[in-house]
C-alpha cells in the first residue's frame, strides 16, 4: 500500500515535470482495495482486469515498478513498450489483462476471462474491477446476466470512490447502494469498507469461496475514496477541501494498516525501514523511467498485427 502511495505521488511529480503526458489517474486513497483483494488471489491462476486507474492493481500484483513507471513516461522499456501509456498496461505473464480506457469494457472482457476459466476448467477466478461511474454502463448488466446465467467464476468489484470524474454517485445512480446492483440477476452483493485492508481481504476470501464452489459470480462494493483529482487535470470544483481532508484524517487506509501493525507488535523502526525501502524503490523506478530511451522509431509499425500476410 505504501508502495502504491509513494509510486503515485512520484507519478504526480513526474507529470508536473512534463515527463508523463495525457491522462494519468492516480490511485491514492484507494490502496486498500487492490492490496486486500490481490493478496487473496493465487498468482498465475486467477486473472485480473481493470480500467484506466490501473497502476495500483499492477503494483499489488507484484509487477515491477520500473516497467510501469517507464510506461508512464512513454519509454521503450515500458511494459507496453511505450505504446500503451498509463491507461493501457498488461501483463499476460501475471494474468493481468489491463488497463482499459473505455469505461465499463473491462466488465464484459472480465466475464470473458471468467468464461475461459470455466471452459478450461482451470479452477481460476477472474476479478473485474470497475468504478461507481462504470456501474451505470449497459454492458455491465449484459455481463451480469451472462455471468449468472452461465455461473462464470468472476468477482465483480465496484470501487466506489464516490465520484465519476465530477459526478457523485447520488447525482448519477437511481440505486446508490451499489452492492445491490446485481440483485435482479440474482448476484449477491456485499458492501465493504474499502479503506480497511483486512475487511477487504476478508470479504474477498468469502467471495472466492462462493465463486470457487461453482455458485457463479458475486459482487463486492468497495466503499473508498480518491484523494486526488480524477486525473491530473481536475478542477476539483465538485467537492470541498474539507470533505477530502476529513477522509484523509479519519479513514486513511495506510494509517489504518499502521495501526494494525503496531497492534500486532511491529516496531516503529521496522515500519520506518519498510518506508525507506519503498522510497528508494520508487526513486529508482523514476530514475529508470526518466533515463531509459524512448521507443525506437521502427516500433511505430510493430505489433499492429501478430502475423504477416
Amino acid at each position: 500500500m505504501v508502495l502504491i502511495r509513494r509510486f503515485e505521488e512520484k507519478a504526480g511529480q513526474l507529470y508536473g515535470l512534463g515527463l508523463i503526458g495525457g491522462f494519468c489517474h492516480l490511485y491514492i486513497g484507494q490502496e486498500a482495495v487492490a492490496v486486500g483483494i490481490q493478496s487473496a488471489l493465487t498468482p498465475g491462476k486467477d486473472s485480473v482486469i481493470t480500467g484506466y486507474r490501473d497502476h495500483g492493481h499492477m503494483l499489488a500484483y507484484g509487477i515491477d515498478p520500473n516497467v510501469i513507471m517507464a510506461e508512464l513516461t512513454g519509454r521503450g522499456a515500458g511494459i507496453s513498450r511505450g505504446k500503451g501509456g498509463s491507461m493501457h498496461m498488461f501483463s499476460v505473464e501475471h494474468k493481468f489483462y489491463g488497463g482499459h480506457g473505455i469505461v465499463g469494457a473491462q466488465v464484459s472482457l472480465g466475464a470473458g476471462l471468467g468464461f475461459a476459466h470455466k471452459y478450461n476448467n482451470d479452477g481460476g477466478v477472474c476479478v473485474a474491477y470497475f468504478g461507481d461511474g462504470a456501474s451505470n454502463q449497459g454492458q455491465v448488466y449484459e455481463s451480469f446476466n451472462m455471468a449468472e446465467l452461465w455461473k462464470l467464476p468472476i468477482i465483480f468489484v465496484i470501487e466506489n470512490n464516490q465520484y465519476a470524474m465530477g459526478t457523485s454517485v447520488n447525482r448519477s445512480s437511481a440505486e446508490d447502494q451499489l452492492y445491490r446492483r446485481g440483485e435482479s440477476f440474482r448476484i449477491p452483493g456485499i458492501q465493504v469498507n474499502g479503506m480497511d485492508v483486512l475487511a477487504v481481504r476478508g470479504a474477498t476470501e468469502e467471495a472466492l469461496k462462493w465463486v470457487q464452489s461453482g455458485k457463479g459470480p458475486i459482487l463486492l462494493e468497495m466503499k473508498t475514496y480518491r484523494y486526488r483529482g480524477h486525473s491530473m487535470s481536475d478542477p476539483a470544483k465538485y467537492r470541498s477541501r474539507e470533505e477530502v481532508q476529513e477522509m484523509r484524517d479519519k479513514s486513511d487506509p495506510i494509517e489504518g494498516v499502521k495501526a494494525y501493525l503496531t497492534k500486532a507488535g511491529v516496531s516503529e523502526e521496522e515500519i520506518k525501514k519498510i518506508d525507506q525501502d519503498i522510497r528508494r524503490q520508487v526513486s529508482e523506478a523514476a530514475d529508470f523511467a526518466e533515463s531509459s530511451p524512448e521507443p525506437d522509431a521502427a516500433e511505430l509499425y510493430t505489433d499492429v498485427l501478430v502475423e504477416q500476410y
Partner: peptide, 25 residues
C-alpha cells in the same frame, strides 16, 4: 460447452468473446 446461445446482448457477448480470446481461447 462449445456451441453457446447468448441472450440478445451484442455489446456484452462481443466483450465476453474478446475477453475469452485474451484468456487464450
Amino acid at each position: 460447452r462449445r456451441v453457446i446461445d447468448t441472450p440478445i446482448t451484442e455489446y456484452g457477448f462481443a466483450g465476453v468473446g474478446t475477453g475469452a480470446a485474451m484468456g487464450g481461447l
